[in-house]
Design a protein around this nucleic acid. Structure first.
Length: 289
DNA sequence: AGGCATGTTACAGG
DNA sequence: ACCTGTAACATGCC
């Protein structure tokens, strides 16, 4: 489900709701996530106040008082549901259908909050994880210490990018999905960015002309920011914590569009599909060079 | 039934 | 020690 825009949208929607609430209780329904949940660790948040949630790449950081930070990665299918008093009382809600067994089945961890509210971590495939860290050595772990700059930040610029792709024996799609080079771009947005940049995903990174690298930088920022504005995307059932569907997938040009006509008006080609670095890759043979 | 899926990383081989 | 590519993780959908 989530690449950078979706995680950002989740962060924003959660911050509005859970800020300054206190964790009353944590219930683990199934702690067998990517890293099994350490019960001794996770109960550290009980009694603490949630100050704010930030995002780094595709990771969410929940900051509590007492220097405790909860690091969350949503994997492929991780989601947060938020239930307020009203939701519980009325059983079904816009946010979350409490009677829907399909939803409830994958509720892995439930955080009981003050004011009778609840935050649920739901994850079908269990590729996500939750870890408790100390603020003082927050970046002292292999998840966060190696990450490249944020793609929508100033550090991801032409000079930086050129230095990184110099001499690299790798294809460009692989490079922009490398979290050590730039962190937050996943398979969907990589496909979209390269289509807009008119660059074939299989091009060797070092073969890019300067103007092409500049296009990649520009469209990376455009696409990600635009998607955040539209509430994210991602296929199927992505929704933010208030249940709103992301609209960005309506604007996909290539992802998942094998066999459909290229979206460029003057192009009559159909979108191709291949595999690069083990992942589905969509592109227009005519428009992308 | 088999292939595919938004992510990360352990591992094997060069 | 680095660099690269592949397989694995768990589950559901088409």
């Amino acid at each position: 489900m989530p690449e950078l825009p979706e995680v950002e949208v989740v962060k924003r929607s959660l911050n509005n709701k859970v800020q300054n609430l206190i964790i009353k209780k944590v219930k683990i329904n199934d702690g067998r996530l990517r890293y099994p949940i350490d019960k001794k660790e996770i109960i550290k948040v009980i009694g603490l106040k949630l100050k704010k949630i930030t995002r780094r790449s595709k990771y969410l950081l929940f900051f509590f008082n007492q220097n405790i930070v909860m690091l969350v990665h949503l994997g492929m299918t991780g989601k947060f549901f938020f239930l307020n008093k009203k939701n519980i009382k009325y059983k079904t809600s816009f946010y979350y259908n409490i009677n829907d067994k399909k939803d409830r089945k994958h509720d892995r961890v439930e955080f009981f909050l003050s004011k009778n509210q609840k935050l649920i971590y739901n994850d079908v495939r269990k590729f996500g994880f939750i870890k408790i860290l100390n603020k003082k050595n927050l970046y002292n772990n292999f998840h966060l210490n190696d990450l490249g700059p944020e793609p929508i930040g100033k550090k991801f610029n032409f000079d930086y990018f050129k230095k990184k792709i110099l001499r690299k024996q790798r294809v460009i799609k692989d490079v922009i999905m490398d979290q050590k080079i730039v962190s937050g771009i996943g398979n969907i947005y990589a496909n979209e960015i390269l289509f807009l940049s008119k660059i074939k995903p299989s091009r060797q990174a070092k073969s890019l002309k300067d103007f092409e690298s500049k296009k990649i930088i520009k469209f990376t920022k455009n696409v990600l920011k635009n998607s955040i504005k539209l509430g994210g995307s991602s296929i199927k059932d992505f929704s933010s914590s208030n249940g709103k569907k992301g609209l960005f997938q309506q604007y996909f040009n290539v992802y998942g569009k094998k066999g459909e006509f290229c979206s460029n008006k003057n192009c009559n080609k159909k979108i191709s599909r291949s595999i690069i670095s083990g992942r589905a890759t969509f592109f227009c043979l005519k428009c992308q060079k």
